[in-house]
Amino acid sequence: MKKYLLLPFLLVVFGAAGVLNSCKKDADSQPTVGTVSLELANMVGTQPLALDGTAYSTASGETFTVSTLKYYISNITFAKADGSTYAAPGEYHLIDASKSASTNFTVSKVPTGDYTGVSFVVGVDSTTTKGDPLALSGDLNPANAMYWAWATGHIFLKLEGTVTSASPNKALVCHIGGYRQPYSALVTAAPSFKGSTLQVRSGTTPKIRLSADVLKIFDGPTRFTLSSFPTTMMPSAASVQVAQNYAAGMFAVAGVQAN
């Protein structure tokens, strides 16, 4: 019996050696990499967002409170001045205003260099969201209540609260998702570095500080009043407008730090 085992065994050994060998070669030719840290500050205008019933007002004087703010940031891409980009694979981050740990995360293995911009999808790409459900773990886990079971896919952004200037008070329910045309809400935000550079070096962890302004969800290419803001719980023309609003103006770079 033993000799029957020998041939496959040799295959294993040589196979493994081959793999190791090619790995080594790759490592030699690979550029060095560094880690980038991202930090999000959820705001309402100039005030930090609190989920404790604090009332905020819009530009037109309507008031509201927020009980839930959650959104996905994924497909993070760093751009250089020469137009070349690095798209970080496998990054899916659920930002939950009620969990401070979720507002900080790092992206590793970013090739070293000087970057002048960042962009990211606010949501989850369609391939991932409708892909193998058994791979949906961590931030993508449907147990995070950011998932539409009836239409297979993640909710990209969830804002809930109360419009307190409406009488009687009106529930603020805004669940944005959907990756199918005509009402795809998959949008990309590209907040400007405003001239700063992100210097990625091995051994340091530069940080991009972002702010996310809730008011911009209602106010952008389309201006909604809170009294007429639709309860959105499925893809619709309004949910696409909301997504375009938050893509356009919700995220701003508050600072780029070297370390």
Partner: peptide, 14 residues
Amino acid sequence: GVLGLELQALAPLT
């Protein structure tokens, strides 16, 4: 609307 048998159970559950 539901694209997989595993995922399907989430709909009635929730």
